[in-house]
């Protein structure tokens, strides 16, 4: 469904800017936050339909943001995609098991990510919402 709100929380401004443009071209409304704390505030105030969370960030890291969200009944239904620069392979095994299960993120994607793959992951989660 077009017009859905996505919040990107990532401290890399260049990455945010480019990703925003790509998602906007797919008719999403995109907001940005650049650290974990700001991210959590905006998740509360803007009630996005989906959150893209970078793992390594100042102030509060992505895992923590995710854990807090999922523990909050008001926010726990918002799908979260965790993004990390940790090696794809490591990410898929040890991470999925330990951090992924703990944080209850809905998907996790290794950086660098192909724009198409990111869009595909978003679409899959938002479709599941309806």
């Amino acid at each position: 469904m077009a017009g859905q709100k996505i919040l990107i929380v990532d401290d890399d401004l260049d990455f945010c800017e480019a990703t925003k443009l790509i998602l906007e071209s797919k008719a999403y409304k995109v907001n940005l936050a650049h650290d974990g704390k700001e991210g959590l505030e905006k998740i509360r105030s803007e009630e996005p339909d989906l959150v893209i969370l970078d793992v390594m960030m100042p102030e509060m890291n992505g895992y923590d943001v995710c854990v807090i969200m999922k523990a909050d009944p008001g926010l726990s239904s918002i799908p979260v995609i965790l993004l990390t620069a940790v090696n794809q392979e490591m990410f898929k095994t040890s991470f999925t098991k330990e951090m992924g299960l703990m944080t209850e993120a809905d998907d996790y994607i290794a950086k660098p990510v192909e724009p198409e793959d990111l869009v595909e992951a978003i679409e899959a989660l938002l479709k599941g919402e309806e």
């Binding site: 443009l21 790509i22 906007e24 940790v86 660098p112 990510v113 724009p115």
Partner: peptide
């Protein structure tokens, strides 16, 4: 070094896609 390279590469990949897709 590998991990440090990933952040700039991620941004670069997105930026190139934006321009290539005519979004800029």
């Amino acid at each position: 070094v590998s991990h440090e390279l990933k952040a700039p590469l991620s941004a670069l990949l997105m930026q190139l896609s934006v321009v290539l897709d005519g979004l800029a």
